[in-house]
């Protein structure tokens, strides 16, 4: 990873002139925004405006959609993730992901956490790593007596925290979360939000949510996405401190959206 033509060094993750196509459909156009270290950056916007598509571009998960093509650069620490000499597997090790629906492996809780670390060549004390990852995801107390039960035996909220623990065990730099609470009840949601605030001490988090209150509660920076005027492609129309986005947005469309007047 050598390419560093645009980097300012200030941001951990930068998207430059990002255009993403599914076949001939340009789903995301001219996205430009940056993610600061140890901050929570939220991407909000209506359904179908390309939030998940942008998020997946950050760890090259779009590679698995055969029709998908990404134009532009995504820089991690100044290194272009789409440079030809970059191994996408390495990218996904450094940038972990938590999905919309909790998706633990049909294995034991212990194995769920240990597996990712093991394939990535972790050599230290696995029991310690599993415990610290589960503690990091604030699910240790729920599972410490049942480490050898199936991950699928947990409740939805516990499963999602297990998935976060699983991501932590690989020791990534960034954690991407795609609507991580959308299938959870309000109490489980609050727990995950609390957890995110703790995690940002050590990790950088990008979260997609269509829940504006959630973005307002947890994030430091918010990127507002919206379909362009031809209603074909989504783009980031405004990025700012979360507080500003929700109280003094510059763009009229952002104001309409955050005040619920969006139709």
């Amino acid at each position: 990873m050598t390419n560093s033509q645009h980097s300012t060094g200030h941001y951990l993750l930068e998207a430059h002139n990002l255009n993403i196509y599914y076949g001939t459909h340009k789903a995301v156009a001219d996205v430009q925004f940056n993610v600061e270290r140890h901050k929570i950056t939220a991407i909000i916007g209506p359904s179908g405006c390309g939030k998940s598509t942008v998020l997946r571009a950050f760890n090259r998960m779009n590679d698995f959609v055969p029709t998908c093509r990404v134009e532009g650069d995504v820089l991690l620490d100044g290194q272009n993730l789409y440079a030809p000499d970059v191994d996408p597997v390495e990218v996904r090790k450094r940038i972990g992901m938590v999905f919309q629906k909790p998706n633990p492996f049909p294995k034991t809780i212990y194995e769920n956490v240990a597996w990712g670390a093991r394939i990535n060549g972790f050599k230290g004390n696995m029991d310690e790593l599993v415990e610290s990852a589960l503690r990091g995801a604030v699910v240790w107390d729920d599972v410490k007596d049942n480490l050898h039960k199936s991950g699928l035996s947990l409740s939805g909220g516990q499963q999602q925290r297990l998935c976060i623990a699983r991501a932590l065990a690989v020791q990534p730099e960034v954690i991407l979360m795609d609507e991580p609470c959308s299938s959870l009840d309000p109490i489980a949601t609050l727990k995950i939000e609390e957890l995110m605030r703790e995690l940002k001490e050590r990790y950088t988090i990008v979260i997609v949510t269509h829940n504006m209150q959630q973005a307002a509660r947890v994030s430091d920076t918010t990127a507002m996405m919206m379909l362009t005027d031809d209603r074909q492609s989504g783009t980031v129309i405004e990025v700012n401190e979360t507080n500003t986005i929700f109280t003094r947005p510059k763009d009229q469309r952002t104001e309409d959206y955050v005040t619920g007047r969006f139709g």
Binding site: N59, M61, F64, V89, E90, R92, K93, R94, G96, M97, F99, K101, N103, P104, F105, P106, W115, G116, I119, N120, C163, R166, A167, V170
Partner: peptide, 19 residues
């Protein structure tokens, strides 16, 4: 979702298939 979980942890295609 299982494949995605695996790839998301930095697994290769073969590791995902095998495990």
């Amino acid at each position: 979702s299982l494949r995605q979980a695996s790839y998301g942890l930095g697994a290769t295609r073969w590791e995902t298939i095998w495990h």
